[in-house]
């Protein structure tokens, strides 16, 4: 089930970005189907996705379903978003373009992801996407009220060598539940930026954009 309308193929050509896609990442892709596990997906050679201009950093929103990834995606990107099935699957991946402090970045809204040991097709797709496209920065979106259940994925993303910004979303809900989270202490403990947001209203999005503008880029290689 190829998606014939996929803009990726067009824009794939002639875009050398060695820093963003190291040798091993390329090899992993060609080795056939990336991290795709199940017999369920046909896994044709996946194509790297491109929407933003050549060389734009790719920022992926990652997290369990229903934590507000899509709402954040809408805040980070403009009007244009493309939804397409990930190659060889029925799972939808949304991509768009966002501007942070004058820099254009590609924003990817990934399917629900609980852990690197995938159970569902959505998870398999997200893992494939992380392996094959190797985003330059990951925004791990978590429900603030369920922090302890969601941090294990933060650990796994860090373990895998990704630059991560932790986004504590739904802080309003968290307060409603009578919980408060010390954002600075959390950031200090994890050693990564932590931003509190309320995606429904857009609260905290500006600060998130600042973090995105400053985070990620140069540390990719050293992190591995």
């Amino acid at each position: 089930m190829r998606n014939r309308n996929d803009s990726r193929l067009r824009e794939e050509a002639g875009r050398p970005r060695p820093w963003a896609r190291p040798r091993w990442a390329r090899r992993g892709r060609r080795a056939g189907g990336g991290a795709c596990g199940g017999t369920s997906c046909g896994c044709p050679g996946a194509v790297g996705a491109r929407q933003a201009p050549a060389g734009a950093r790719r920022v992926a929103l990652v997290g369990s379903p229903n934590v507000g990834k899509s709402a954040l995606f809408n805040h980070l990107t403009g009007a244009y978003a493309t939804v397409s099935n990930y190659p060889g699957t029925t799972v939808e991946v949304t991509r768009g373009e966002g501007v942070v402090e004058g820099e254009t970045v590609e924003v990817i809204d990934t399917p629900g992801f609980y852990s690197f040991l995938p159970v569902t097709e959505e998870e398999r797709v997200t893992r494939r996407l992380l392996v094959e496209e190797r985003p330059d920065l990951i925004l791990h979106v978590v429900e603030a009220a369920a922090l302890d259940r969601m941090l294990p994925l933060t650990f796994q993303l860090l373990e895998a060598g990704f630059p991560v910004i932790l986004v504590l979303n739904m802080m309003d809900e968290c307060e409603r539940l009578g919980l408060s989270v010390d954002v600075d202490a959390l950031s200090a403990r994890l050693g990564i930026p932590v931003v509190a947001t309320v995606a429904a209203t857009g609260q905290g999005v500006d600060q998130l954009k600042q973090e995105v503008a400053h985070g990620g880029r140069s540390l990719l290689e050293s992190a591995i």
Binding site: L147, D148, L151, P152, Q156, G178, L179, D182, V183, R189
Partner: peptide
Amino acid sequence: RYRWSQRVAAAVVQERAAR
């Protein structure tokens, strides 16, 4: 991993009021 997570969460999350 869950133990790490609990340790971190316990240090930064405070329960203030009921739901």
